[in-house]
Structures are given as structure tokens and as C-alpha cells.
Write a protein that binds this DNA or RNA. Structure first.
Length: 436
RNA sequence: UCCUCGAUAGCUCAAUGGCAGAGCAUCCGGCUGUUAACCGGAGGGUUGCAGGUUCGAGUCCUGCUCGAGGAGCCA
């Protein structure tokens, strides 16, 4: 068991240890027995492997002990790695020794059979042990790492935005309210305004963290707590922003394909679909999108915002993400820069994922003129005193600048081809669910 | 907030208004290459809650609770 000649290894790298003596530290995922031989499927967080225990190697007692070991018992196994076509995964480990670290209670709730959503979410702390959830969380992690890689390579500096914020930044979405000593505070819905300040200090910046929306949305696309990456760059104008966004989205998709092919297959996602995600992405102006929807029979007038069915319809016209640009000023946020050639639309763009996954990024060029921004704040009836610091950015060396936010869970749900964003969050917070 | 659907064993589900059931899981037994192993046996129920109709309600009616999907909402 503790022989130094035995190599510690993970299941994901088992093929490198063929015919070696290995030690794997994991849990019992499943087992089968056939009299005096026991097959224990061990998982270690990197994958699954079949361990074979026969009477001559571990003795009568060993076989009996393994045979009655409950699912999810923690176990350290030592044995010889063998390539074997009969084993799921192609390799198995012939047990010479093992140690039960903790025998699980025999009533582990997540069996290998089907379960309902409600039950699984109540047991999310155990559900994440299943191969599919492990694969999704791995893709999420690689996706987030790829975002940071790309931004760091492009010279962006990560600047953490505050979570506790003093005011209703945009006055639109419903925020979670909390106490801040003697005052009220709100959980952040976006780090953008702070990133605009940081961009004027460091040039190219991004924040990466959780955001909170207290909206009573109850759909497959919504979470009350989700993560966003929000890049913001000084001197970046609208056209460059769109090029930058498509480069970033293409990069992170390619990186996930490179690092998570096994996981994508495990989830049931065809990697070929993602291999098509390369620049340039198609673009439609809001005008063109409205016209296309009207031709398809939707009752929508110029000036209306898109609902979920409209976004789906537009995204289904392409097999790549599509930018919808130049929205009417009235349906977008107060800080959006108006189009210099046309005052009724803004230099903003939403990126809609293919296959009906909806908006995965939203962004645009920000107003850099002090007077114009002040007008907008007044038009939106926002409290000017709360925005003094934001207006300061336009008083001291203002420059054109742009940025966007990408919702991690929606993007990962699209990349994995999932029905619902809830599976992409380790512990999702939704309208009716805050536990576990 | 609204619309639609749902709630029966630990889990997934079945049961024409007429004895509350199956598979899996659990426990006991069998099997030396299994593939969500298989075979035999056992235990396991306030049918979400509260009323009502009926000779009789898991089933029909009313209210409530909880959940799911969607709408609204959602830089």
C-alpha cells in the first residue's frame, strides 16, 4: 500500500502508466460482482476506471469487503494497470491492495438511474460527483481560464470590481438589497462603470466575478447569481470592439475544444458544431433584424425590444454567433454612445449565440462627452449625485472607450449544448432555490 | 405577477371512481470477466396539505402549498 515503488496517478493520465504499479485515490462509483471476482468502478474526479479484484490477489476477505462496499465509499487502490478492451475506458487496474478510507452510508441518494430536476437540485452537493456534471464544471473552468488567457495576452489587466455597491446603477434591473452598516447597499449587477474608471487608469482592463439580479425570471436562461467577464478598453471604438469580441469568443471556444474534447463528448456535444466558430461573425443592424422578423411573420415594430422568441429566431438564421447592432437609443442603457451618423440608434451590440441560446454578450461604445452623458442621466431620471464620480471620468482627459460583458453560464450552456444554464453553475441560485 | 403542466415507496413511474403496484436503490442468499451485470427472496405508503361530492376518491370538485416549463421582466 505505501510501497514507494508504486506510482500515484490520476485516472485521466492512466494510459501513460500501462503495466505499471499505480495507486489511485478515489471513490466507489459503482460495482459488480460475479462470485469470487469483483469489479469496482472507481472515480477520482478526473475520470472513471474499472478495478478488478480477484480472490487470489486480495483474498476471500478482500473480495467480500469490496463486494459489500456502498456506493461513494472513499477508497485508495493499488494495482497493475492493464490495457483491456473489456474495460470501459480501455484500461483497468488489477487490484493487489486497497484501503477503505471511509465506508459510505448505504443510502447514497444519487443512484445510477434517472432522477428528476427537483431531486437533483436538492442534492446538488452530491449531484456534482456524477461524470456529466464533472465534465460540465471542467468545461466551465477551462472556459474561464481561456477568457483570462486571451485578455492577459492582449495586455488587459484584471481589476476587481466591488460587489457591494451604493446605488441602483442603471435604475432598471431589480437588485438584491442588503445592509451596509447604517446604510443600504446593493449586490452588484455589473462592474462596468467601475471598469470605465479603471480603463482610464490602466488602459485595458477587465473584471471577472459574480453579479446578482433579483428579477423574478424563471426560464432556462436565467440565474439570480451568475458570473460575467467584462473587458473595457480606453481608445477602443465600436468597430474595433466588434472585432475584439469575435476574436475573444473564437479563442475561448477553440481553447475549450483543445482542452475538453473528452468532456464535450461525455456531455453529448458534437465538437464539429463548435469548430465552425471562427471570425468573422455575421452582423445585422437592429433595422435589418426587425425587417427579417417581420418577414417571418412576427408582429414587431421598430422601437420594440426583442423578446426571447425574437432572439432565438435571429440566432437560428446563422450557425455562428451573430452581432445585432445599432439598437434604438430608447431601449438601451443611458451610457451608450449615439451613432454619429444617426442620432436615434446607439453604437451597441448584442452577440446572440447560435441554436437559440440567446444573448451571450452585450456591450458597445460608451458616451465620452460630459454634456451628452449629463443629458442622458437626466433623461433617465437618475440621481446625478450618485454619478458624480462617473461624470468625473468625462471631465479629466475623457477618451472614446468601449467594452462588453459576457455571461459565463449562458456561454458555457451554449458550448456544452445544455437545456438549462443551471447545470453550468456549481451551486446555482435561482428564483425558487438558494440551497444547498 | 400571469399562462400551462405536475406532486403516489429513498428514486423514476404505473394504477377505467372499486384490494396501492413495478423497476431501480436498501437488506439477505447465489454466481470467477462483469459492462446502468444477472438470478432468487425480504422489508418499505398519512397517494403534497385542507375541505367537498360519492355506497366507495390516488382518480372528480374547491382552496392552499411546493415544483417544472414559458411569458413579462432581464447593460
Amino acid at each position: 500500500m505505501d510501497d514507494p515503488a508504486v506510482k500515484d496517478c490520476t485516472i485521466s493520465e492512466i494510459s501513460r502508466f500501462n503495466e505499471d504499479l499505480c495507486r489511485i485515490k478515489g471513490w466507489v462509483y459503482n460495482k459488480r460482482s460475479s462470485g469470487k471476482i469483483v469489479f469496482v468502478i472507481v472515480r477520482d474526479g478526473t475520470g472513471l476506471i474499472q478495478a478488478v479484484a480477484s480472490r487470489e490477489d486480495v483474498g476471500d476477505e478482500g473480495v467480500k469487503l469490496l463486494d459489500r462496499l456502498p456506493q461513494e465509499s472513499s477508497i485508495v487502490v493499488v494495482g497493475k494497470v492493464r490495457e483491456d478492451k473489456r474495460a470501459p475506458g480501455g484500461y483497468e487496474i488489477h487490484l493487489l491492495d486497497f484501503r477503505v478510507v471511509d465506508e459510505a452510508d448505504p443510502d447514497y441518494p444519487i443512484t445510477l438511474k434517472e432522477h428528476g430536476v427537483d431531486f437533483l437540485l436538492d442534492h446538488r452537493h452530491l449531484w456534482i460527483r456524477t461524470p456529466r456534471q464533472r465534465a460540465i464544471l471542467t468545461v466551465r473552468a477551462r472556459f474561464m481560464a481561456a477568457c483570462r488567457e486571451f485578455l492577459d495576452k492582449q495586455g488587459f489587466i484584471e481589476v476587481s470590481a466591488p460587489i457591494l455597491t451604493p446605488s441602483v446603477c442603471e435604475g432598471t434591473t431589480t437588485l438584491f438589497e442588503t445592509r451596509y452598516f447604517e446604510d443600504k447597499a446593493y449586490l452588484s449587477q455589473s462592474g462596468q462603470l467601475y471598469m470605465e474608471a479603471a480603463a482610464m487608469a490602466l488602459g485595458r482592463v477587465y473584471c471577472f466575478g459574480p453579479t446578482f439580479r433579483a428579477e423574478k425570471s424563471k426560464t432556462r436562461r436565467h440565474l439570480a447569481e451568475f458570473w460575467m467577464v467584462e473587458p473595457e478598453a480606453a481608445y477602443m471604438e465600436f468597430e474595433d470592439l466588434l472585432k475584439f469580441e469575435e476574436a475573444m469568443v473564437s479563442y475561448v471556444v477553440a481553447r475549450v475544444l483543445e482542452t475538453c474534447e473528452k468532456e464535450l463528448r461525455e456531455i453529448g456535444r458534437d465538437p464539429e458544431v463548435l469548430a465552425k466558430i471562427v471570425p468573422p461573425f455575421p452582423r445585422m443592424t437592429y433595422d435589418e433584424a426587425v425587417k427579417a422578423l417581420q418577414e417571418k411573420g412576427y408582429e414587431i415594430a421598430w422601437g420594440d425590444d426583442f423578446g426571447a422568441p425574437h432572439e432565438s429566431e435571429i440566432s437560428l438564421m446563422w450557425d455562428k454567433p451573430v452581432f445585432v447592432t445599432h439598437y434604438p437609443k430608447a431601449i438601451k442603457a443611458f451610457y451608450m454612445q449615439p451613432d454619429p451618423s444617426r442620432d436615434d440608434v446607439v453604437l451597441g451590440a448584442d452577440l446572440l449565440a447560435p441554436e437559440g441560446y440567446g444573448e451571450i454578450t452585450g456591450g458597445g461604445q460608451r458616451i465620452h462627452d460630459f454634456d451628452l452623458l449629463m443629458d442622458r442621466i437626466r433623461e433617465h431620471k437618475l440621481p446625478v449625485e450618485d454619478y458624480q464620480w462617473y461624470l468625473d471620468l468625462r471631465k479629466y482627459g475623457s477618451v472614446p472607450h468601449s467594452g462588453f460583458g459576457m455571461g459565463i453560464e449562458r456561454a458555457v450552456a451554449w458550448i456544452c449544448g445544455l437545456e438549462h444554464v443551471r447545470e453550468t453553475a456549481p451551486f446555482p441560485r435561482m428564483l425558487t432555490r438558494m440551497r444547498p
